[in-house]
Amino acid sequence: MEHWKRCGVALSFALSGAVTAPAFKEGFESHSEALIGLVGLSFGLLVFALIWRSIAGALMIPIIVGTWYLAYHVATLMGISLGDFLYFPMLLGGLIGGMGLSVCRAISQRESNLAISAKICAAAIASAVALGPWLTQFRLHINSPQGTDQTIRLAVGFAVWQGVMGTLLYILRPAQTPTSKEDLTAGSTRILD
Rank of each mutant, 00 (worst) to 15 (best):
M1F: 11
E2R: 11
W4A: 15
R6Q: 06
V9R: 07
L11S: 03
S12I: 05
S12D: 05
F13C: 05
A14I: 04
L15K: 03
L15H: 10
L15Q: 04
L15G: 10
S16K: 15
S16D: 15
V19R: 02
A23P: 02
A23N: 03
F24N: 11
F24S: 12
K25F: 11
E26L: 08
E29S: 10
H31G: 10
H31C: 10
E33T: 13
G37Q: 04
G37R: 00
L38Q: 09
V39F: 10
G40M: 05
L41S: 09
L41D: 01
L41Y: 13
L41W: 01
S42A: 14
S42V: 08
F43T: 00
G44W: 02
V47A: 03
F48E: 06
I51M: 00
I55M: 03
A56G: 10
G57F: 06
A58I: 00
A58H: 03
I61T: 08
P62E: 07
I63D: 01
I64C: 01
V65S: 08
G66A: 12
Y69H: 09
Y69P: 02
Y72D: 03
Y72R: 05
A75N: 12
T76A: 13
T76S: 12
M78A: 11
G79I: 10
G79W: 01
I80W: 11
I80M: 15
I80G: 10
L86I: 15
L86N: 06
Y87R: 04
Y87T: 12
F88H: 06
M90E: 14
L91N: 07
L91A: 07
L91P: 04
L91E: 08
L91C: 14
G97F: 05
L101E: 00
L101I: 13
S102W: 01
C104Y: 02
C104F: 01
R105Y: 05
A106G: 12
I107E: 07
R110G: 04
R110P: 07
R110T: 11
E111P: 08
S112W: 09
N113L: 00
L114W: 12
A115N: 00
A115M: 08
S117P: 07
C121H: 10
A122P: 05
A123F: 11
A124C: 13
I125T: 08
A126I: 09
A128I: 14
V129M: 01
V129I: 12
V129E: 11
G132F: 04
P133F: 04
W134Q: 08
W134E: 06
T136D: 15
T136P: 02
T136N: 08
F138E: 03
F138G: 01
R139C: 13
L140P: 00
H141E: 04
I142G: 14
I142F: 15
N143V: 14
P145F: 08
Q146P: 03
T148V: 10
D149S: 06
D149V: 02
D149Q: 13
T151Q: 15
I152S: 10
F158G: 06
V160N: 07
V160I: 15
Q162M: 15
Q162N: 14
M165H: 13
M165P: 00
G166C: 09
L168Y: 02
L168F: 07
R173Q: 07
Q176Y: 07
Q176V: 07
Q176L: 12
P178Y: 12
T179E: 09
T179G: 13
T179D: 08
S180M: 03
S180G: 05
K181V: 14
E182F: 04
D183A: 13
D183K: 09
D183W: 14
L184E: 11
G187L: 02
T189D: 12
D193E: 05
D193S: 14
